[in-house]
Nucleic acid binder design. Sequence first.
DNA 1: CTGTAGGTACGATACGTGTCATACCTAATG
DNA 2: CATTAGGTATGACACGTATCGTACCTACAG
Lengths: 110, 110
Amino acid sequence: MTMSDTDNASGTPLELGSVLSALADPLRRQVIRELAQAPVATERTCASFGFPVSKATLTHHFRVLREAGLISQVDRGNSRAARLRREEIECSLPGLLAILVSEKVEPVDP
Amino acid sequence: MTMSDTDNASGTPLELGSVLSALADPLRRQVIRELAQAPVATERTCASFGFPVSKATLTHHFRVLREAGLISQVDRGNSRAARLRREEIECSLPGLLAILVSEKVEPVDP
DNA sequence: CTGTAGGTACGATACGTGTCATACCTAATG
DNA sequence: CATTAGGTATGACACGTATCGTACCTACAG
């Protein structure tokens, strides 16, 4: 486990305020939703989501998710793999992922 | 029903982003938590919660909750009674109230 | 009438947030 | 080596948010 001390430590319940703030942003909700709907051990890079924002903005968003404890990130040198912390989320906040997955999102205009 | 058009109309699913933003604030979470734990038809005034903030700040917070569709307010001339919209919340976002109720909140120092 | 209690609208303030550009890093490729 | 891809830190900016004070409203009590 290579988490820094600003990340949510394993076994610590998630801080609800941080989680809700993190998920108030639509881009960050989409990240969690896609990871929640992917196979369990899925790991994805920031860039793989294809959001129409700058790399710096992506970095910021993934940092917020990580510090809220919603994802963990593994350093791969020139990339980082993000993984959903399903068990921790389901343990601290049962049903939250289901709420996110069930959100109806308007398709983005082409 | 005396809601204005900025409030969530009956029967419309709650907008998850607005709800999460509204609940990201600890004072607003406390409001919902107390209403959720009270008898079903409970109606309370803004001032009855006894928060250590100004009346204007209270007005702002209750407005955010109302516009997110989490509460409805009934005008009583010189006061307004806030009621939790349990059924709508439970219908749109099953389990959300349980998450809020189970949050462990540090007691405020005397 | 005045005072109290419970509100709202408005403007102002300090801080937070989403975004970007820039410079830099790591790693891989040709 | 240069280029590409995937990142981070930093600073700047525009906007949003929580807060307050003020003036005003409604309703009630004396």
